[in-house]
Design a binder for these strands. Structure first.
Length: 277
DNA sequence: ACAACCTCCTGGGGGC
DNA sequence: TGCCCCCAGGAGGTTG
């Protein structure tokens, strides 16, 4: 599931394969995947002829700069893929946008489960878009400090896990890396936000940064069908310490605990009851 | 204001 | 073998 490291991997791929190319024929197929009031024909008209500039990211959102100051935003949801393929590569009913590029290849947006979406900001003010207006500080941004994390958690009674998943606070963490960060920090996913000590918040901040940086270096985690731009699975899956490991032994040296799975806000949480308190 | 649910969607897997 | 049900979860919406 594309969280920050997977989206960053896609961003790097697109920066190589898409930046500098012109979009010369665009087909959009589903109005319900377009935010900001767009429909397919208008989006096709607006995109056609634009040249792709820099590719950025905030949280799990891709920010694709276009000529004339427009910006295309893309969220991959659960199963979304945005990649540059050969023009002969087959497409299916889950392919929702195809843009032929000036170099003979094509940009393809495919998303079977359709939790993803696209939004064009013709005015070049993506910060006010439907997509980004509720998205907080990127988890890898310099401005995301332990102090900022402490401010976000202060006074809240919700479990820490819920706060980490809330994109309005810190953006980019999903279910996998929330579990992994809490394990590394040795903090119970059920601990109320406001009850963490300063030291625990510092540990949590450090754990978030480290697990995300390691996952970026490994080109993400492949659970079901995410692949990197090169079409290969991410390598971080083998380094997960709790996610998906229910019933297995804790990997922390000297810990005899067994990983448990609980459900929090309808989502699986994996943790070690022996080392997370 | 905040927290706890519900909803959208499809493919894959388990059980019978 | 085939069918049905459940499960995965990002994020916005609704309810309390």
């Amino acid at each position: 599931m594309p969280e920050l490291p997977e989206v960053e991997t896609v961003r790097r791929h697109l920066a190589c394969a898409l930046s500098g190319r012109r979009l010369h024929r665009v087909r959009a197929r589903r109005n319900d995947l377009l935010k900001g009031g767009w429909h397919c024909r208008a989006l096709e008209r607006e995109l056609t002829g634009r040249t792709v500039g820099e590719i950025g990211r905030r949280g799990k959102n891709l920010i694709i700069g276009l000529s004339n100051g427009a910006v295309l935003l893309a969220h991959l949801g659960m199963t979304g893929r945005l990649c540059v393929t050969d023009a002969e590569a087959p497409t299916d009913q889950h392919t929702h946008l195809i843009a032929d590029l000036s170099d003979g290849r094509r940009l393809v947006f495919r998303d079977p489960r359709r939790f993803g979406h696209l939004e064009l900001c013709a005015d070049g003010r993506p910060g006010e878009s439907e997509t980004l207006r509720n998205v907080g500080l990127d988890a890898m941004a310099d401005a995301f400090t332990a102090r900022r994390l402490a401010e976000m958690l202060a006074g809240r009674t919700a479990p820490v896990k819920a706060a980490l998943l809330d994109q309005r606070c810190v953006a980019g963490i999903g279910n996998i890396y929330a579990c992994e960060a809490m394990f590394r920090a040795g903090i119970s996913p059920q601990a109320p936000c406001g009850e963490l000590s300063e030291e625990q918040v510092r540990r949590l901040h450090r754990a978030i940064r480290r697990v995300l940086a390691e996952a970026i270096a490994a080109e993400g985690t492949t659970i079901a069908d995410y692949v990197t731009g090169a079409g290969v699975p991410g390598r971080f899956g083998e380094r997960l310490r709790v996610y998906g490991r229910e019933g297995e032994r804790c990997r922390r040296r000297g810990c005899a605990g067994v990983i448990e799975r609980i459900v929090q806000s309808n989502r699986s949480t994996f943790y070690c009851p022996a080392c997370q308190r």
